[in-house]
Design a protein around this nucleic acid. Structure first.
Lengths: 141, 141
DNA sequence: GTGTTTGCAAAGTGTTTGCAATTTA
DNA sequence: TAAATTGCAAACACTTTGCAAACAC
């Protein structure tokens, strides 16, 4: 039972080690914020603000670097919904998104609620990297 | 037959008028580049370069402004495939895209080659704005 | 100790904006 | 001539980078 308490932290330590990233104070703290509470979608700005609010001393540049390193290591996935802002998703499995254009909120979509009938024929000499589906919604009032 | 030659230009003049945009030299020239040859996907930078190559005197700022005005007027549609770069599509009907991650090329997908089984249930209080599907491919060698 | 990571500030992208000069109607 | 548009340069938002100081192992 007591072990449960520490699982997130321990988990992150292991994740970083596996990814070949030194578990520095900043990476551990950011990882804790990112992975402790299930699926999250954050921008660098959002995560930095959250870190500051939690009295974690880390620069915005390091947040950017960390998000990119986590993404390269497969711990995060980048989601493109708006030009000029990068979102990072803690859910790296294949799935799609709902994007709220009014407030910039992004949520996962359970994969089974939606699926493509069939993939189109890909252009000659290309291979599929991934299919991105974004359902864009706005407040209906 | 002779009339065919001028159709694109005349068409653009009419489009601009309908959209309430004064048909200035720059807008007409950019519109001609955009709409003369069927469906195109351009960034501001690309269109500006093309204009310069065609001896059309227009500033990059005006290209940006024009692309935004055309988009607001429904003559273009913005497509988000990469954070940090905006693409504009001359095809404003409902359709999806193939994005070549290696070279940044973007192409339309015929709508019938692909379709969603069903839309997910939208969050309470929201309405659908649009569904964006991007098939990301890379060179397979 | 050695190599890695951090933080800052500076530089880099892509895009928007203020305003005087120009153009359109 | 009145109102809209252009072009430039400056400002912007977001992101990356160079390098000295701090840190991990």
């Amino acid at each position: 039972m007591g072990m449960m308490r520490n699982r997130p932290f321990t988990d992150i330590l292991a994740r970083l080690r596996t990814a070949g990233l030194r578990p520095t104070r900043q990476r551990l703290a950011l990882g804790k914020l990112l992975f402790a509470d299930g699926n999250r979608h954050v921008t660098a700005e959002m995560l930095h603000e959250e870190a500051v609010d939690n009295k974690i001393q880390v620069s915005l540049a390091t947040v950017y670097n960390t998000l990119n390193q986590f993404t390269d290591a497969g711990l995060l996935r980048e989601v493109v919904v708006e030009s000029g802002r990068s979102y990072f998703d803690t859910n790296t499995s294949e799935h799609h998104h709902i994007f709220h254009v009014d407030n910039g909120a992004l949520e996962d979509l359970s994969d089974d609620s939606m699926r493509l009938v069939e993939l189109p024929v890909l252009p000659e000499g290309t291979q599929l990297e991934r299919v991105d589906i974004v359902i864009r919604v706005r407040n209906s009032n």
